[in-house]
């Protein structure tokens, strides 16, 4: 699907992640557990200059922006493996929120708060044991394997 035009914030030349989330919620297929939207547009919320993504905490939908995950955004040379690694981490992170996970204190965990790409690169690429267990129990699953 395309990014809903109503989510565009003309004054900021960005898209409201909150508005995109609302649109996404109307598009969730009946048999889907979660829905993750990925966009190349730069996202924001009214009080923050930008966000990497937004999710419904314990809900169904999440959205991730790739705009600020590219090295080019910061004037660097393209680095596809690094870019994909960042997309993977932020996608897992936002999906984690939909499983009720909040930010994790552990720097090894993908649920660690990351406001900059430096933070994203520094944190681990998987859920820590604690977050995996909580997510599994929230999903109604077993031991969280």
């Amino acid at each position: 699907m395309s990014v809903p035009p109503a989510s565009f914030e003309a004054g900021r030349n960005q898209h409201s992640s909150t508005k995109i989330l609302k649109e996404l919620l109307g598009e969730v297929p009946k048999d889907a557990l979660k829905l993750l939207g990925i966009t190349g547009m730069d996202l924001c919320i009214p009080i923050l200059t930008y966000v990497f993504g937004e999710a419904q905490l314990g809900g169904t939908a999440a959205v991730v922006s790739t705009a600020r995950l590219r090295q080019e955004f910061y004037g660097g040379a393209p680095d596809r493996p690094l870019f994909l690694e960042r997309v993977r981490k932020e996608s897992l992170h936002e999906l984690g929120h939909t499983f009720g996970l909040i930010h994790c204190r552990s720097g090894e965990c993908v649920m660690h708060l990351s406001n900059t790409v430096v933070d994203v690169d520094a944190k681990g690429r998987n859920f820590c044991t604690y977050c995996r267990t909580v997510a599994a129990s929230n999903a109604g699953g077993g031991s969280g394997k």
Binding site: S16, I45, P46, I47, V51, A55, H97, H103
Partner: peptide, 17 residues
């Protein structure tokens, strides 16, 4: 007084626990 601000700030802060 703006609902969208309350909503977005709340959800962002809630993600931080």
């Amino acid at each position: 007084d703006e609902e969208i601000v309350r909503e977005s700030l709340t959800s962002w802060l809630e993600e931080d626990g």
